[in-house]
């Protein structure tokens, strides 16, 4: 592994990334950096390419041009086995949960451990149960994905992303569909992971309260570019006209 060379550099770096689907240009010279141990939130209108950005960072999509570096490696150039190794250090929370529909909640969370480690059954169960407790669904092991609500699916998705103790977690709207109480505790969890374990996070989020709690920096994505990237205090007081329009603060 050649990741040590850049251990101090940013965990994720997008440089002039362009991506189009057919005629539709989604990313158009998008650049950003996520520093190690920090949390960066991405905001932007619906359909602007936030999920697409996250998918580039984990290699589910590849850029048409520009570079995407993760752990200091250009992700389009790593071999399949190396990419698999890199992904074991990452967690991904899908927007719609993306739970495996024929596995129970517990087995969904246990899947990465079952497939990629030789943990004993007891140890494995204990770890899964701990993660389920973290997201406030301690008794959900035997439920099937079709039996649980959208917000619960989301939380199972978070538990599954956390199960391998990743260094880098990509959250696609972790709070969508959660009630305020649970949302606050998920936010606290994201914060704790960062402060306690030095996890780096990229969070796509719409909720301002959440962004304020979890982020070190906020990025506004529109028109395929990063329009504003700033600390939360500055971001929410920015007088960038596009931001003002987005937050409905247009006074003039």
């Amino acid at each position: 592994m050649t990741t040590q060379a850049t251990e101090g550099g940013p965990v994720i770096r997008f440089n002039e990334v362009c991506k189009r689907f057919g005629e539709k240009v989604v990313l158009d010279g998008f650049s950003m950096e996520l520093a190690r141990g920090k949390t960066l939130s991405i905001m932007g209108p619906s359909g602007v390419g936030k999920s697409v950005t996250l998918k580039h960072a984990i290699g589910l999509l590849t850029a048409d041009s520009g570079s995407v570096e993760v752990f200091g490696r250009e992700i389009s150039e790593v071999s399949t086995p190396e990419l698999a190794e890199m992904r074991k250090r990452m967690g991904y929370v899908f927007q719609e949960g993306a739970l495996i529909n024929w596995l129970s909640v517990g087995e969904n969370v246990a899947l990465p451990l079952r497939e990629n480690t030789d943990l004993e059954e007891d140890e494995l169960r204990a770890r899964v149960e701990e993660r389920l407790r973290l997201v406030h669904i301690p008794d959900a092991w035997d439920l099937m994905p079709s039996e649980i609500s959208g917000g619960m699916k989301k939380r199972v998705g978070i538990a599954r992303a956390l199960i391998t103790d990743p260094e880098l977690i990509l959250y696609d709207e972790p709070n969508a569909g959660l009630d305020p109480e649970i949302a606050r505790s998920i936010n606290a969890l994201i914060r704790e992971l960062q402060e306690g374990l030095g996890v780096s996070s990229l969070v796509v989020e719409h909720r301002i309260d959440c962004i304020k709690t979890v982020s070190d920096e906020v990025l506004f994505l529109d028109g395929g570019k990063a329009l504003v990237q700033a600390k939360p205090e500055e971001f929410f007081h920015s007088n960038h006209p596009r931001l003002a329009r987005f937050f409905g603060k247009e006074s003039a």
Binding site: K55, I58, L60, A84, E85, R87, K88, M90, Y92, F94, E96, A98, L99, I100, N101, L111, P112, E115, N116, R160
Partner: peptide, 16 residues
């Protein structure tokens, strides 16, 4: 159905 509901992507990012 797994493919269109992102479950295959989920398996991929978990290196399964």
């Amino acid at each position: 159905t797994m493919s269109v509901s992102n479950e295959l992507d989920a398996l991929e990012v978990m290196s399964v």
